[in-house]
Amino acid sequence: MKKFLNTADTYLTDALAGFAAAHPELSVNLESKVVTRARGPVAGKVGLVSGGGSGHEPLHTGFVGEGMLDAACPGEIFTSPVPDQATEAVRAVDSGEGTVLVVKNYTGDVMNFEMAAELLGEEGLQVETVLVNDDVAVEDSTFTAGRRGTGATLLVEKIAGASAARGDALSEVAEVGRRVNAASRSFAVALTACTTPSAGRPGFELPEDEIEVGVGIHGEPGRRREKLRSAGEIVSDMVDAILDDRPLESGAEAIVVVNGMGGTPLSELYLVYGEVAALLEERGVSIVRSAVGDYVTSLDMAGCSITVCEAQEDFLPLWDAPVNTPGLRWGV
């Protein structure tokens, strides 16, 4: 395993300590693993909290700040946080207006955040959960754990964050978050497996001429293995999968995220974006906003995900609203 690390056991806390050192504007509790905006709850504002396994940086810790999350609770690598982290995060940011939890749809995340929400409810805190489940590689049926939460998390956290920042009520913040999720679909492809520090070697073996299609963000193998083809062909299949699941009519407007998994150069992501843009244009869909970069990663995996979100009228001003976080910043 080739990584900048001291020991596998200290990887996460060392990285968090570095994050804390680099971002004095945030408050990082290395013991409990909770990251909050340094100045505490914002009076009159609904709180926005998210969390999940680590290894997806900048998600979620990198999205704490003005206009986005009030707190994040990073679990161990690829392991959802424990309820204590979520309760501490919510308590730290709740100003009395209630808190929205953004939870990616994984069995572990759902159960741990549910336990936290139950405890918080017993304490009299208002908590609403927004479940993100945008990944069309997984059938959303009773025969699976349901669609996974992936790239759309960026959109949900940005847009719900802006909604909370402008003073919307708890139910409104949750509602817009849910609508963003409902309007979003994603699909991902891996060129390589990733290596978790504790495993010390890649999660699966992938020959030089093969890719994993329909992967999640935890280094699992995907739905199927395929021969490596041209970017145009791969992206065309990805866009088909997304639009087959949730068709967009000609004339529709979309926000598109081309997201790197951690080991993909930016130039390749732009190349992929170019293919997506051409395919959507063919279908008469216009891209009104886009983001190309590493947002929801899988450690050192080479690969990318594409997220298409049908832009509803109120999404754009919220997307454009100022945001000031380590991982996303504009307008301030």
Binding site: G53, G75, S80, V82, P83, G108, M111, N112, M115
Partner: peptide, 12 residues
């Protein structure tokens, strides 16, 4: 276990 494990197996 609940407060140390996380993931699916922690709550279960």
């Amino acid at each position: 276990l609940v407060s140390r494990v996380g993931g699916a197996s922690g709550p279960l």
